[in-house]
């Protein structure tokens, strides 16, 4: 188990704040997008791109790279912000999000965006694609690891459970799935719309290695990824308990900000809270 010093943790926390700030700026400039889920997943995305994953922005097709699938494609702003901060494309490009002729589509598109592995947006499909990437890595005897982030509401799509069975059947221990458990979906709390609990029991029953963490605690995220790496013979799911809209006071736990851009006043407050990332 790697020990992470305080400086590493603080640097990643600062980076996550930058990612959140970009996401808000992008959504404000686009006048549309999904702030709530972008902010809840920001710490997970930051940990993966700036610490956990082996990847090379100068060589996006490096064969031994680890691969990332954002199944909850609507959190694209945080994903794009991480890619830009890593150097996959210029940071200036972020403000073209959702505009005509942009490389940054409303949901991730592998044909358009440098560094994006698979196209997502129609929910419930990412884990299956992650399975395919993981099977290919096994076939190629590559050390490449596959990371996927699913939303919690998205788990209502039956395809996830088909995929959960396949990953266990083929012992995909090179696959780590994060569930961004922010407990809210468009129409309300997940437990009211279509209950997911007991969620941990479901994954255990499907034959997965289970870890449960606070998805905003950088040290817990890193250590969970390390535990997943050490697990053999089964895939790992990390239930990351998060807060929708995390980092912007009035967006936290607010269903209204699932898929709505902030207005000018809200935007100014949000930037103030996040510190300007420019």
């Amino acid at each position: 188990m790697t020990l992470y010093d305080d400086q590493t943790i603080q640097d990643l926390e600062a980076k996550a704040k930058t990612i959140r700030c970009h996401a808000i700026k992008m959504i404000y400039a686009a006048k549309s997008g999904h702030p709530g889920g972008s902010l809840s997943a920001a710490d997970l995305i930051t940990a993966l791109f700036f610490k956990i994953m082996k990847h090379d922005p100068n060589n996006p097709h490096w064969e031994e790279r680890d691969k990332f699938v954002l199944s909850k494609g609507h959190a694209a702003p945080s994903y794009y912000a991480a890619l830009a901060e890593c150097g996959y494309f210029p940071i200036d490009e972020l403000l073209t999000l959702r505009k005509v002729d942009s490389n940054l589509q409303g949901h991730p598109c592998r044909q358009k965006t440098r560094g994006v592995e698979v196209s997502t947006g129609s929910l419930g499909q990412g884990l299956s694609m992650a399975n395919g990437l993981a099977l290919a890595a096994k076939l190629d005897r590559s050390g490449s690891r596959i990371y996927c982030i699913c939303g919690d509401g998205e788990l209502q799509e039956g395809q996830n459970w088909e995929a959960a069975m396949l990953a266990a059947q083929y012992k995909l221990d090179n696959l780590t799935l994060f569930i961004d458990r922010n407990k809210l979906q468009i129409d309300g709390p997940t437990e009211q719309v279509m209950s997911l609990e007991p969620l941990a029991d479901k994954w255990l029953a499907f034959g997965w290695n289970l870890i449960e963490i606070n998805g905003h605690d950088m040290r817990q995220i890193l250590e969970a990824c390390d535990k997943a790496k050490e697990t053999t013979g089964k895939p790992t799911v990390i239930i990351a308990n998060t807060i929708k809209g995390k980092g912007v006071s009035f967006m936290e736990g607010a269903i209204g900000f699932h898929g709505k851009a902030p207005n000018e006043d809200e935007y100014k407050i949000a930037l103030k809270e996040l510190g300007d990332c420019a």
Partner: peptide, 10 residues
Amino acid sequence: IGTAAGLAAA
């Protein structure tokens, strides 16, 4: 089909 896409993406 999703798994096929992932394998092809690799």
